[in-house]
Amino acid sequence: MMKNGGVIFDFNGTLFWDSAYQETSWDKYLETHNVNLTMAQKKEYIHGRNGKDTLEFLFKRKLDESEVEQYTEEKERIYRSECLQHEMKLAPGATKLLNYLKAHEIPMAIATASGKTNVDFFIEKLNLLDYFAEEHIIYNDGKIKGKPHPDIFEKAINKLGVKNSQSIIFEDSFSGIQAAMNSNVGNVIIVNSTNENYSEFNFPVIEHFDEFDRNLLVGCMKQ
């Protein structure tokens, strides 16, 4: 029998509060390529977007697959070394919530715009397989349309075998929230890890996973 709903987490800025490391690594990367962006441009074209879309905006031309791979990996090496200079841990209250979901056998997945090399890094450094089956960690494989398209969330929901209408998505980026809305899930929860203004959205905003109303999980429980 089809389970009701599942819980899908965006990763960067949601389950793992790495926005400062992302900012620093993007700044270093843009500097090496002599590209200047405003904060507004970064918000629109970088945060939560997939790599190809971002890079084509930065370099103002179409890029082939090998170029996207090369440029992305160059940036992500800077990012990973930035992460390693800090204590790497999941977001405030996240471990407690993940343990609760696991104990109640609630299907859960990650849907991230990160690529494979970063996902492997996160799996190793943050012990993600303690909570998520590897096939339920959906990442940017270069074939999925980037957020705000709902494709990555749709793929996660299909992998879990759950209903959109009963599912919950946690997101932090504006393009990610739009993608969550476009996937027609029952609930979208905004994780405010960077003191952002989300007043344009009519969704609950949390700054700690303990603030999440677990009554919303009733649609995800086994009947």
Rank of each mutant, 00 (worst) to 15 (best):
V7F: 06
V7I: 08
V7N: 09
V7Q: 12
I8P: 13
F9W: 10
D10L: 09
D10P: 15
D10H: 11
D10M: 09
D10E: 14
F11N: 03
N12I: 00
G13Q: 02
G13D: 01
T14N: 12
T14R: 02
T14Q: 03
L15M: 15
F16K: 01
F16Q: 02
F16M: 06
W17P: 04
W17R: 00
W17G: 01
D18I: 10
D18P: 12
D18Q: 08
D18T: 04
S19I: 02
S19F: 07
S19Y: 08
A20L: 15
A20T: 06
Y21H: 09
Y21P: 10
Y21R: 14
Y21Q: 11
Q22C: 03
Q22W: 00
Q22N: 03
Q22I: 02
E23H: 00
T24E: 14
T24P: 01
T24V: 11
T24R: 11
S25M: 03
S25C: 04
S25L: 02
S25N: 02
W26V: 00
W26H: 12
W26D: 05
D27K: 07
D27Q: 12
D27T: 03
K28N: 09
K28C: 10
Y29V: 01
Y29N: 09
Y29I: 04
Y29F: 13
L30W: 08
E31L: 07
E31R: 02
T32C: 05
H33N: 06
H33E: 07
N34P: 13
V35I: 15
N36E: 14
N36G: 01
N36V: 08
N36A: 12
L37T: 06
L37Y: 13
T38N: 11
T38G: 10
T38R: 05
T38C: 10
T38H: 09
T38A: 10
M39D: 13
A40C: 04
Q41E: 15
Q41H: 02
K42C: 03
K42Y: 04
K42G: 01
K42D: 01
K43Q: 13
K43F: 12
E44A: 01
E44C: 01
Y45D: 03
Y45E: 09
Y45H: 13
I46M: 10
I46C: 11
I46W: 05
H47G: 10
H47A: 14
H47N: 14
H47D: 14
H47I: 10
G48T: 01
G48S: 04
G48K: 04
G48Q: 10
R49H: 05
R49S: 10
N50A: 03
G51R: 12
G51D: 14
G51I: 06
K52S: 13
K52D: 12
D53H: 08
D53W: 02
T54K: 07
T54Q: 05
T54V: 07
